[in-house]
Amino acid sequence: MSRIEGVLRTLREQGRKALIPYITAGDPHPDQTVGLMHTLVDAGADIIELGVPFSDPMADGPVIQQACERALRHGTSLRQVLAMVKTFREKDDATPIVLMGYLNPMEAMGQEKFADGAVDAGVDGILTVDLPPEEADEVAPLFTARNLDAIFLLAPTTTDDRIRAISEHSSGYVYYVSFKGVTGAGKIDVDEVAANVAHIHELTALPVAVGFGIRDAATAAAVGQVSDGVIVGSVLVDTIARNQADPDQLKRALSDLLHPMREALDSLPS
């Protein structure tokens, strides 16, 4: 059983929902990332999605685009991101780490070398935004052989046939994108999300985590109620941008944001 599966199974048995924060590695500075990851765990994170910065993040809105630009200004490379995870693992052997990013930096490293490096660093899952399962037939076996979970996106536009096919290629969880748009945009329609996630649950036994549009305790609770977990990204990254000058204040601000979400999720009737 992978670390991700284990954590999600335990949560399910406890009747709790997963809180999955996203930050971009190297933002605001590579030296701060490991510390911020521990802060996220202390504030209640069950799984961390760690963004691998890319020069052309097509699926992201301005907030995460700028985070990528900040990280790349300091030369954050995929190699360094793996080193950050390895350092994180020195103090935390329990929290699953999912690398989230775009295909090109992974291909540039070499898929096999990347898969080896990810396992060696203690990474648990890989989510490649611009890699649909149709194009993953070369890389998927590399991940499977190393017990790395391949996490794919589902969207409001995904047809039933594709939901089934994508779920078959996935392990750990599936990531449901709550609305049509880029990260950080738009307002989430909780009723629509509830209906769509319920439908996805009919088609796959995998846990369904929902991202895009979750910005506070209220939206976290509303979405947590109808799914297995919530992914929180842009609002955290925006907080990093606004507090980048003061590392201690930044940690406090991230905690202050996540704590109420954790409490709201844990107050949901199980």
Partner: peptide, 12 residues
């Protein structure tokens, strides 16, 4: 070639 896009665009 291929179709390397985020899932939302796939159906379109």
């Amino acid at each position: 070639g291929g179709r390397f896009v985020s899932e939302t665009l796939f159906d379109s």
